Amino acid sequence: MGAVQPPVAAQGRSFIPAQFWPWPRALGDTRDSPVRIEVGVPVEMAEDVFLLRLPLPFALNHINVYLIREDEGWVLVDCGVDTAESRAIWERIASRISPLNRIIVTHHHPDHIGLAGWLAERFDAPVSMTAGEYAVAGRYSDPDRDIIAERFPLWLEHGLSKERSTALLAHMPRYDEQVSHLSADRVGFIDPQQPVRIGQRLWQPIIGQGHAPDHLSLLDESGALLIGGDQVLPTITPNIAVWPGGDQNPLESYFRSLDRFLGMPADTLLLPSHRQPLYGVAARARQILAHHDDRLRALWEACADWTNACELLPALFGRPLRDAEMGFGLGEAIAHLNYLEGRGCLVSDLDGNGVRVFRRCAISTIDQGSPS
């Protein structure tokens, strides 16, 4: 959703109920790790745990992946998108990370799984991920489907014109162009109920929803380290969007998933997929909740009369969206509107052109809280 500054939590009235965000709602502080990160240069974040930053050909121009040293060899968490530039980095450090004992993928998005197949063949390594993420990756890579074209009716329903929807098809990233082929016989599934032994540490899987259906984070048994993937990110928020055939209320699913992070100690080091590692996971999770509460309020206030999701994009983002941003942003707007409708804060209907429009309900339907 872009860079965020944590807003002040609403006092006394909130669009996020206490079951997802308990009172009192003091946000707390985070503290960046002072480590200096350079693209293509592994840096040790904790004993035997190294961060490697890889380039991305997007506005968000990097991903952090993690190499964990074992007695004999390494385990890799996430892989980067499949580009010649990233492959060259892996080739340059190949001798330093051999043997590669296993590849773990947090979720199906191209910047995380993109090079998994190529690396698995290059290092003769197995790949581990959750069953739900593998299933989605399989659908997205199915040559008999056009996942992007399947979104066309959704865009039309929510107010994007046929002309703009047609133009958007050309701007949305194509999965098969960013993700290398991953052989099924290379893949094993992670049991979310069982700890994962990597090197000298035992890691507890934490499964989250909203950003992806079965997103994997890993918390080491001491609570000192969290490999967070995209579930909790510093300074930005993960894209929470509605897609055809997926979760139709992903924002509520995301709020439920943050519960595991709200109780983490202040000295847990978050190793995120993007931006700078930080201390204060629970505080960051609360800041993200406050951000979404603020955006939900902005949408609710903008729905004084019947309005569609496309018309509401300025209220949600505060700036114009271009190219692929429109596809991701519209999906995120729909997610916020579906959440508000599910909470009884909005109602929706189809107008005479078959476009879904939303209008707010009385303020009394919004959950009341106990201000801190």
Score class of each variant (00 low, 15 high):
248 Q>H: 09
254 Y>H: 01
134 Y>E: 07
225 L>M: 03
268 T>C: 13
15 F>H: 09
304 A>K: 09
130 T>V: 13
310 C>V: 10
265 P>E: 11
75 V>M: 06
200 Q>S: 14
291 H>Q: 10
232 V>T: 07
189 F>E: 06
315 A>C: 03
352 G>V: 02
276 Q>A: 04
12 G>C: 07
201 R>F: 11
288 I>Q: 02
2 G>A: 04
60 L>Y: 13
128 S>C: 15
220 D>N: 07
239 N>E: 15
33 S>P: 03
309 A>P: 04
347 V>I: 06
115 L>R: 08
197 R>A: 15
151 R>G: 03
95 S>M: 05
265 P>K: 08
299 L>I: 07
78 D>P: 08
169 L>I: 04
223 G>S: 13
9 A>C: 11
344 G>D: 05
348 S>W: 00
323 D>C: 05
164 R>F: 01
300 W>A: 00
173 P>N: 08
4 V>R: 15
153 P>G: 11
122 R>K: 14
191 D>F: 07
345 C>D: 14
160 L>Q: 04
3 A>C: 04
192 P>G: 10
246 G>L: 14
56 L>T: 12
98 S>D: 06
274 H>E: 08
180 S>V: 09
194 Q>M: 06
297 R>E: 13
279 Y>S: 05
44 E>C: 06
334 I>L: 02
6 P>I: 10
247 D>P: 01
308 N>E: 01
371 P>W: 06
190 I>K: 08
196 V>H: 12
260 R>T: 11
203 W>L: 08
117 G>D: 05
236 I>P: 15
253 S>M: 01
367 D>I: 00
207 I>D: 05
94 A>E: 15
330 L>W: 05
230 D>G: 06
173 P>E: 09
224 A>L: 10
278 L>P: 02
171 H>G: 06
283 A>T: 02
141 S>K: 06
38 E>A: 11
210 G>Y: 03
119 L>N: 07
51 L>D: 07
362 A>M: 13
309 A>F: 01
341 E>L: 03
71 D>N: 04
31 R>H: 13
332 E>T: 08
73 G>Q: 10
124 D>V: 12
318 G>E: 04
13 R>S: 07
271 L>C: 10
36 R>T: 11
223 G>V: 08
232 V>L: 14
168 L>S: 03
107 H>C: 09
340 L>I: 07
326 M>A: 05
138 G>D: 02
197 R>K: 14
340 L>V: 05
142 D>R: 08
197 R>S: 13
156 L>I: 09
290 A>F: 02
354 G>L: 02
330 L>V: 09
62 H>K: 14
51 L>K: 13
86 S>A: 14
170 A>I: 10
293 D>F: 01
257 S>F: 01
88 A>G: 11
299 L>Y: 01
17 P>Y: 00
241 A>M: 12
286 R>W: 01
120 A>H: 10
92 R>A: 15
241 A>R: 15
63 I>Q: 11
